[in-house]
Each structure stands twice: as structure tokens, then as C-alpha cells.
Design a protein around this nucleic acid. Structure first.
Lengths: 354, 354
DNA sequence: GGCCAGCACTCACTAGAGTGGAGTGCCAAC
DNA sequence: GTTGGCACTCCACTCTAGTGAGTGCTGGCC
């Protein structure tokens, strides 16, 4: 039964992160099994796994060692083992990054991007749905920040009642707006004069680098409006991560846990866009791709794992993809899907920015 | 104990939707109690309620009658009663519309709208959060449709690569965009010429009433671009309900049910914007304010009730507020909150449109 | 020294019996 | 029509085996 498969593993280097080859194989088998069944895994279920050509007794003693070392744990004595966060961590590290996506998934991704149309926000939104479908996780998509996008057009539109709208079109196709208050004596002429000056001031400049002030025009009212417009532009340039998060498939969290209280607390986190965006940012900043259990500091997500993948637009990390699931999520699938979708999304966004 | 309070009810007209005064009082007491406790209500818990100055034995026989008539049901023999959908319906009808909001809630609403700032989308989003906080329900806010909003500004911005963006600013401060493909030979001149013609064509017109075609300009390329721009404008005028729904507090659904499967199916519905928007639309169209259980046709929401409230902008029903909770939701609170917030939101939007 | 069959042990899970209590329906009396 | 009294029902809870998956240990074997 276990004849050919093992050779590869038997001859692998002995030290694989403190674990000998067989222990690693057993750990992987436990993790894989548990991800599939969500049931504690006994020694008997592991003996047939590749790389484990020993009896259940030997597996037991190895499992005991793995438990001593903190990779596995028992819900109670005389139950099977389930992986600890450390166990999942080993499993994930040993995967060595995303593998290929299964053909069905690849097909689904291809179809999606072939038919993806419409505006960028719509596409990001749908992408989160696609990822959720592919992985059965909750998907988070953070759109590219507009900080460095070049201003293609600025417009000042009066709305009446001392209110005007600064409308900016950026090179990546994003449209931003910000309302400003007008001084009492600002009429159409002032608005159009100020609009013209804003165009001269900001056109062709990255949003975050719009200069703080423009020269005087001779008309103090115009100067006031221009100043307000510049302030509005600059405030749009600050990436507050507020308006660019798309969460898809949050209902999957309900399927992932059977404690309704866990579901509630996870959903509560997901409602806080700022928390989610900075969480993903933090994980990326620590250089991780997967954050398991307590590794990210967010307490209510202690029983969750997060897979993050940067989305590169023209070679620059611009957006982020995140997948949220229980710690026993399907890591190989999640990693593969995140990579493939991230790459394709990046390509798409790069094309659009060109 | 029950002396003064009853007189009002004792002298009420005998037929209140097929129920005599005392039965109605008992039904109301059961509903109120059950909304608070989520536990089946026994005859003993009802004898102290206003309008019920009889013994538990009498209450029992009335309850039996109410069950025969379909207002109450028993989870099992020898358990207390819980209201049926019909029972909730009677309760809600007898409320006769929204009552006043409690002072704390009023205060919260006032504070919110005093400090509400920023763009319309942001405000709608935050409004959904406010409603969820007030009522402990999931809140849905459908923004005003832009069909009838007057075009304040049209702009054609080239994005390179045979792509341009039609950017429309509407009188209510909304900004819409739609990308169009350009013919091979469209250069900056064509773009600006076409942009100018679009302005002439659409400015001051309600979005849904933009005429289908403009006269020829003499330059076939310009005509092509203008046609594409008009098509884009008209497509924006179609209220597909896609981009104007804001759902807040979906985590509250997890707290409302203890069956995780129910939570999952409800969340799945909430993820389908189109379904939610048309559901609210349907309920409003049937002239209801509250849809209980099976009254709306959506099967996965059979254990939910929905409170809807139109939001009037300048006297015209423009947006919608919806509250989703379990059938045993706090109807008086939900109705009061929806009314107050809906009114204030309407005022706010009317101001902005002026 | 590493591996393994055998064995005693642990403990969640299930089913069944017993009990308490909340609640009902019915009835005779007022 | 209303009420107190009473027998009855049935859930929720507890307790008690019994079962079985799974463990740790041990002594013998290669």
C-alpha cells in the first residue's frame, strides 16, 4: 500500500523545521484530514498516508511527540488530535507558497475575467464574489490606493446653496468627489475661474502630491475657493482605506463555525472596514502570506486564518486580496486561488491604467 | 393591580379585527412578552397585563380560542403559546403605525444628523449603521434613484487606449461614471468636441429623459463618440438598484437566531443586492409597512420580518429604509426608528437637492 | 535503538429511566 | 361568563450504564 510514494519523502533531509521526515508527514496528514473532516484525527486514520509506512502504535508515539512540541493538541484525553496554530503554521510553511489551481477553478477564473466588464469598483466587487465561490471563504478585496494616480481631470461643479463639488478623474479610471463650501459671494464666474486654476494646479500630478497652495489670482474669493478645492483634492489623496474595500461571501462564515457567537463576532469585525483594511495591511507588512489564529492580533478572529496576497499594478503593489476562513480552512486551495485571481486582477488593472 | 389602565380598553369597540377587547389585550400581551423573552408565554404571565383583569383559567380559554383562530400556536402540548405570523400581523396592525421614539434614541438620531457630513453615499452607509444600532436589527438603506435627477455637468475624459469616461454630476450631488470605447481615430479634439455636444445635449435634463440621439455634427467620428456618450448616460439613468444599497449590522442576524443554518441563509440573501432592493420595492408596492414571515415571498426569510419606510425627498418617494429582524423583532421600536430616521434623512437629502 | 502487537484505560457520546415543573384542558361551582 | 381545582402532558434536566474510538504503556522482536 505504501511503497512507491514514500521513497521521495524517506530520502528527504532529516531536519524539516525541527521535525524528522516521518513526523512531518504525520503532521501533514493530520492537518489535511482535519481540514477535510473537522473531526479529531486518530492514529489509525494516518497510517495509510504517504510517508507514514509504520504501524498505528508508532504513529501514536510520534503524535505524542508532536503534541509535546506544540504542533497538535487533544480536545480531551482519548480523543484524536487536532492541529494547533503552530501545526497549521508548519503545514503552511511546508507548502512553500501557492500551488496551481485546479482546472475547474482556473476555468472559472478565466471565464470571469473574460466576461468582466464595467467600472473598476464593480469588477472588484465581483472579484470578491468569485474568490468566495472558489474557496468557500469570505473574500476581501482592497482596491488600489489612489494616492499615486495621476489627475486626469478636475472639475468644479456648483450645486447651489453655497455648495460645490470637486470632481476628479484619475488616470486609473477612478472618479472621486468631495463637496466644499463656498463663500457667500461666489458666483458662476468665480466657480469657473477657480475651476480653471484648479485644473492648471493639479492636472498631471499624482493625487497625493498636489501642492498645498496656489499663487494668488488677484480675486480673494477665487483664492478662497481654490484653497478649498486644493484641500479637498489633498484629502482625497489620503488613503484612508475607507471606500475601497469589498467583502464577498460573508455568509460563508456562518457555515464555517457552529457556534453562533463566533459567527457574530467575526461578522462584527467584517463590518468595520477600517479594521479589516489595516489588518490586511499589517499582515502584509510583517511579510506574511498567511496569518493563523493569534498571529494577527485581532482577538475575535482567533479561530480564523487569513490569506493575503498583494495585487501588483504595473509592478507596484497597489491592492490586496484577503481570504478569511476558519483556521482549518483549505490552505492550498485558498493560496492557489488568491494567487491566480490576484495575478489576473493585477493584469486587468494594469491594462486599465495604461 | 389592574384598575385604571383597563378602563380605556374595556370600553373600546368590541370588534377589533374579529377579536373582542380582552382577547386582543391577551394577544398583545403574549406578543410583547414573547418579543422580550423569546420564550413561550404561559397564561400566568399574562394575567397582570393591562386589559386582562381575569384569572389564568379564563386567559387559558381565551388563548385556546386565539389558537383556534390562528393567532397563537404551541411549540408542543403543555407549553406556553407563541404568536403566529397572523398574531404578529394583528399586533402590528393594532399599533396603527409608528409611535414616538424613546428619548435616548431621539438624542442619538439628532446627534447623528448634526454631525453627519461628507458625501451622500457615506451618509447613507452611516445611516444604515445608526439604524442597526438603534433597533438591533439589520438595516438596509436604498439611496434615492438618480433617474429623475437633473444633470448638472457632463464631462468626457480620455483615459488613453481608446477608452474614455463619461462623468456626470447630478443635481443631488451624485457623481456617476461610465466608460465608453472610442473609435480608432478619436483624438483630443474629437473628445473635446464630443464633450461639448454632450453638455449641450444633456445639461439640465433629468438623467432618465436624455434624448436618444443628437443631431449630426458633420464629423462622423464625433457623432460616434457622442452616440456612445448618450448611450452611457441613458444606461446610468436606468435604476438597476445595483449601486445604491447599504446594508448595516448584518452581524445582528447572528444574534437573532440560534440556528446557524438560518443565519447563513439570511446572510446569503443579504449578499444579493438586487434581491434585497426588489424585495423592499415589492413590499412598498403592496402598500405594506411591515412584512411578516411568509408575507414577502422570499422563502429563506420565512422566520424574518421586514419593516420598510419610504424616504421622501422634496415630497417624492426617493429612497427606502428597511429593517430586517426575526419575526419576534421589536416592532414598535423598529417602526419608530425607521420613521424618525427616514424623515430626518429625507430632510437632509431634500436640503442637499435644493 | 526503533518498531510494533497487545492490553488496560480514558472519556465523549448515546440511550433510557426517572423527576420536577411549567403549563394545559376540563369541569363543577359560583 | 368566570373561576378555583385537578388531572394530565411533556419538555428539560439529571443520572446511569453501555459503547467505541482513541490513547499510553509495556515487553518482545528485528
Amino acid at each position: 500500500m505504501t511503497t512507491d510514494d514514500d521513497r521521495r519523502l524517506d530520502h528527504a533531509p532529516p531536519g524539516d523545521g525541527d521535525l524528522d521526515t516521518r513526523k512531518a508527514a504525520i503532521l501533514n496528514a493530520v492537518v489535511t484530514e482535519y481540514i477535510g473532516s473537522a473531526l479529531p484525527v486518530g492514529s489509525q486514520h494516518v497510517v495509510d498516508a504517504p510517508g507514514v509506512s509504520v504501524s498505528s502504535a508508532t504513529v501514536r508515539s510520534d503524535m505524542a511527540a508532536l503534541e509535546r512540541d506544540g504542533y497538535l493538541t487533544q480536545p480531551h484525553t482519548s480523543a484524536g488530535r487536532i492541529p494547533t496554530d503552530k501545526g497549521y503554521r508548519f503545514f503552511v510553511d511546508q507548502l512553500g507558497g501557492p500551488g496551481p489551481l485546479d482546472p475547474g477553478g482556473r476555468q472559472q477564473v478565466r471565464q470571469f475575467f473574460d466576461h468582466a466588464h464595467g467600472e473598476i469598483e464593480e469588477m472588484l466587487e465581483h472579484t470578491s464574489g468569485l474568490l468566495a465561490d472558489l474557496t468557500d471563504c469570505t473574500a476581501m478585496v482592497v482596491g488600489p490606493s489612489h494616492e499615486s494616480a495621476v489627475v486626469r481631470s478636475v472639475q468644479l461643479v456648483g450645486l447651489g446653496h453655497r455648495l460645490a463639488l470637486v470632481v476628479v478623474v484619475l488616470a486609473d479610471g477612478a472618479v472621486q468627489k468631495q463637496s466644499i463650501e463656498l463663500p457667500e459671494d461666489a458666483d458662476e464666474t468665480v466657480l469657473s475661474e477657480a475651476g480653471g486654476r484648479l485644473v492648471v494646479h493639479a492636472l498631471g500630478t499624482p493625487l497625493a502630491q498636489v501642492a498645498t497652495s496656489a499663487g494668488p489670482s488677484g480675486n480673494p474669493t477665487v483664492d478662497l475657493v481654490v484653497a478649498a478645492g486644493i484641500a479637498a483634492l489633498r484629502s482625497l489623496g489620503v488613503a484612508d482605506g475607507h471606500d475601497q474595500l469589498f467583502v464577498g461571501g460573508s455568509s460563508r462564515m456562518a457555515a464555517a463555525f457552529d457556534a453562533v457567537e463566533t459567527v457574530r463576532s467575526v461578522l462584527t469585525i467584517l463590518e468595520q472596514q477600517l479594521v479589516v483594511v489595516s489588518l490586511l495591511r499589517d499582515i502584509l507588512d510583517t511579510g506574511l502570506t498567511v496569518a493563523i489564529g493569534a498571529e494577527h492580533g485581532v482577538e475575535p478572529l482567533a479561530s480564523c486564518a487569513i490569506v493575503v496576497m498583494p495585487v501588483s499594478v504595473d509592478g507596484v503593489e497597489a491592492g490586496t486580496i484577503g481570504l478569511l476562513g476558519p483556521t482549518r480552512m483549505n490552505y492550498p486551495l485558498a493560496l492557489a486561488a488568491a494567487r491566480v485571481v490576484g495575478d489576473r486582477l493585477g493584469e486587468r488593472l494594469s491594462e486599465a491604467a495604461r
